[in-house]
Nucleic acid binder design. Structure first.
Length: 139
DNA sequence: GCCAACGTTGGC
DNA sequence: GCCAACGTTGGC
């Protein structure tokens, strides 16, 4: 199973907002970046990911799960953009800050650290395990 | 609020 | 197809 990281500004849409959507989850719409779209196209139902708060907090705050594979973005008329649906699984015990991720040598190549502008990122199995450990949560 | 990094657009 | 100009993101 592949792992991912979804970035959102908590002012706009926070992990608590996703939790409020329940098991049906939420369409991850509004992504207008080809790399991010291509990552979403490869996602499978059941794939898990981290939920990261950008700008405010700058930390990984929760675990999410893909509940629907890529489909046309309902907020896009051009037919160019697609998105998956995700649901909240659980918040992490201890949020992992960007500062903490940068300070961990084994996460040096993590996209969150090396390519901060990508809004939907792949997370390697090794990175997944390390961050879960730092977050005090089960993988 | 500033600005660096990055992606996209469009003129040639 | 190159690359300068522009817009956006997100850390600081």
């Amino acid at each position: 199973m592949a792992h991912w990281l979804f970035k959102s500004e908590p002012d706009v849409f926070s992990f608590a907002d996703l939790e409020s959507k329940g098991p049906a989850g939420q369409e991850w719409d509004g992504v207008r970046n080809y790399q991010a779209r291509n990552h979403m196209r490869t996602m499978q139902v059941g794939d898990r990911g981290f939920f990261y708060h950008s700008n405010e907090g700058k930390e990984i705050v929760g675990i999410v799960e893909v509940v629907r594979t890529a489909h046309p973005d309902s907020t896009d008329d051009s037919g160019t953009w697609e998105c998956v649906d995700i649901r909240a699984v659980r918040p992490v015990v201890k949020p992992v800050t960007l500062v903490a991720a940068k300070a961990e040598p084994r996460l040096k190549t993590m996209a969150l650290v090396s390519n901060s502008r990508l809004s939907v990122q792949p997370v390697s199995d090794a990175e997944w395990a390390i961050v879960c450990e730092m977050a005090g949560t089960e993988p």
